[in-house]
């Protein structure tokens, strides 16, 4: 899986990494029992203080997403899928809630907002289909963006 830190994001770098792991687990791109990169390797890769990476890993460990194995680093914990899915739903409900709040605050009617959400879902599906045609489905495992948009359909129902 790919990790990246966006310096312009309002989310702190450590939380960005933790979110990326949780979204990857929730979307099935990171399976239970899979090994995560070591703190030092990841710190070098994303140019971040290793203490920050290790704090993110520790938080994931405390919430049951990761488990340490003696002498060999961090692995995705057995109960991680459920934890990660709950987190994903909550985080995205909040994000979508903010976007919907912006739309309503700007004077759109609730129906118009629903139409916009439906349009966005359709556009995303179309983009996904063209991407699937051009590349093998197994290769489409990049970015947390995709996982975040999958969640829009249950919101809409």
């Amino acid at each position: 899986m790919r990790f990246e830190v966006d310096p312009r994001s309002p989310v702190s770098p450590g939380d960005q990494l933790a979110d990326q792991v949780r979204f990857a687990v929730a979307a099935g791109r990171l399976a239970v029992g899979e090994r995560l990169p070591s703190v030092r390797d990841l710190a070098r890769l994303v140019r971040l203080n290793p203490n920050t990476v290790s704090r993110a890993w520790r938080e994931l460990e405390l919430t049951g997403v990761l488990e340490p194995r003696r002498g060999s680093g961090m692995y995705v914990a057995p109960g991680a899928l459920e934890v990660a899915r709950t987190f994903r739903t909550r985080a995205l409900a909040e994000r979508l809630g903010r976007a919907v709040g912006d739309a309503l605050g700007a004077g759109l009617a609730p129906e118009e907002v629903q139409d916009l959400v439906q349009c966005a879902c359709a556009a995303w599906r179309a983009a996904e289909n063209t991407a699937r045609q051009s590349t093998h489905p197994c290769d489409s495992r990049d970015g947390a963006q995709r996982g975040s948009q999958e969640e829009e359909s249950p919101w809409n129902k």
Binding site: R40, A43, R44, R47, L48, N49, P50, N51
Partner: peptide
């Protein structure tokens, strides 16, 4: 800037 950052991070590791 990026090279300085890389050097500092590698040192911290």
């Amino acid at each position: 800037r990026r090279k300085v950052l890389d050097g500092v991070i590698a040192h911290l590791c």
